[in-house]
Amino acid sequence: MSRYLLNKFLYTVDRDPELVERYRNDPRGTVEWWEANVANTLLNCVSGESSTWLTFEDAEREALASHDHPRLFELGAHPFLTLTLFIAMFERDHEGLGFQKLYAEQLAHFSLPYPDITT
């Protein structure tokens, strides 16, 4: 499992409005495209530099493809990264702070100690 790769996905998608919309409308296709084209590029580095070994595990890929933020948290994705991305995708579908409240409710079953979110 790579918490780094989960967090990198959330971070990079959240910073590109076109990717946010793509992920909202075609999550599975976006995850597959991102894994094939972006996962092994180095974050904040000159273009042309890349690695070759980073891939999602099936559980990570499925949680991303199904927008399952409680499962992502369980797998070690940072909750602030999921929250900011999912607000960008779903806040428009809820009144006021409706999405933020739903997000909190869906994570309420977690208790200390929380899943490890270190990368």
Rank of each mutant, 00 (worst) to 15 (best):
S50N: 13
N44G: 11
L19D: 14
R28L: 12
Y11I: 02
V20W: 03
R24H: 15
L83W: 11
A59L: 08
R22H: 14
A63M: 04
W33D: 13
V20D: 07
R22P: 01
G29M: 03
P115C: 11
E57M: 06
V13A: 08
G98K: 08
N37I: 05
L64N: 03
S50W: 04
D68F: 06
R3T: 12
R92D: 15
R61V: 00
M1W: 02
E105I: 00
H78Y: 08
S51G: 13
L102R: 13
R61Q: 09
L107W: 12
E91A: 15
N37Y: 13
Q100V: 15
F90I: 01
L5C: 11
S50V: 08
T82L: 03
L5Q: 05
R24L: 14
L43I: 06
R61P: 01
P17I: 06
L10M: 12
N7E: 06
Q106M: 11
H69W: 15
L10I: 04
V20G: 12
E74A: 09
F9A: 04
R22W: 09
S47F: 05
D93K: 10
L64C: 10
W33C: 09
L83P: 02
V13G: 09
S2D: 15
L42H: 04
E49G: 01
P17Q: 11
S66T: 15
S2Q: 12
M1V: 14
P113H: 07
A108G: 05
E35W: 02
T119Y: 04
R3W: 00
L102W: 04
F99S: 07
P17A: 13
L112A: 14
T118C: 05
L5S: 10
Y11L: 10
L75R: 00
R61A: 14
E105C: 03
G76M: 02
F73I: 12
H69E: 13
N37W: 10
T41A: 14
T119R: 04
G48A: 12
C45Q: 10
V38K: 11
E18W: 01
G96R: 07
L97Y: 11
T12L: 15
N25G: 05
G96W: 00
R24W: 08
E91C: 03
L85R: 03
A108H: 07
R61Y: 09
L97T: 13
C45P: 00
D26E: 15
E91S: 15
P17H: 05
F9Q: 02
D68G: 07
H67M: 07
Y4L: 05
R15S: 12
E105T: 04
L6H: 06
T55R: 15
G29A: 03
P115R: 02
R3A: 10
F80T: 11
A88T: 01
E62Q: 11
T118Y: 10
G76Q: 07
P79C: 13
I117R: 08
Y4I: 02
L83H: 14
L72W: 01
L54M: 14
L19T: 12
A108P: 00
V31T: 10
P113E: 07
H78I: 10
R3Y: 03
F99C: 07
L43Y: 07
D68I: 01
G96L: 04
M1C: 14
A39H: 07
G29H: 02
A39C: 11
E62A: 06
S2K: 08
D26G: 04
E95W: 00
D93I: 00
P115V: 04
N44S: 08
Y114K: 03
